[in-house]
Amino acid sequence: MNIDGVTTGIVLDHIKAGKGIKIYNYLHLDKLSCSVAMLQNVKSSKYGKKDIIKIDELIELDYEMLGYIDSNITVNFVKDGRLLKKEHLDLPETLTDIIQCKNPRCITSIEQEIEHVFKLVDREKKTYRCAYCDVEHKEYK
């Protein structure tokens, strides 16, 4: 299957197969007026299978959120058909309003419109703890 290359825009490459749709939704790509292509299960020499998202416009990206969902993603910025820069993501030190604390004893369960903040406490094990109650977030693993 062939999808046209991006002339000026962003290519999110090396997305873990299956996570493309999650990123599509988190970035609200359905709200964009430019062309957006999401490829699933593309053959990859590195990972076997991967997802790719191509966005035909240079938009602001939430690196914190992207890094949390998949820190192996490569972000390629393309301008006039040429690769402008390539960025590799990392697990962010802090997550703000990306995941929610599920501890019913946490202040975030009752305080209005409070930011949900998580801190990375173990990079190797990808462990995040709520900045308020210190309870570990389990969903990621």
Partner: peptide, 29 residues
Amino acid sequence: ESVSDTVETVGCYADIIAMRHPKEGAPMV
């Protein structure tokens, strides 16, 4: 009333606050 609003109000009257709350992380808020 939220913890934030209570504390912002009391901050107008006191120089230092000692706080106990049943919810974890309330003093950080």
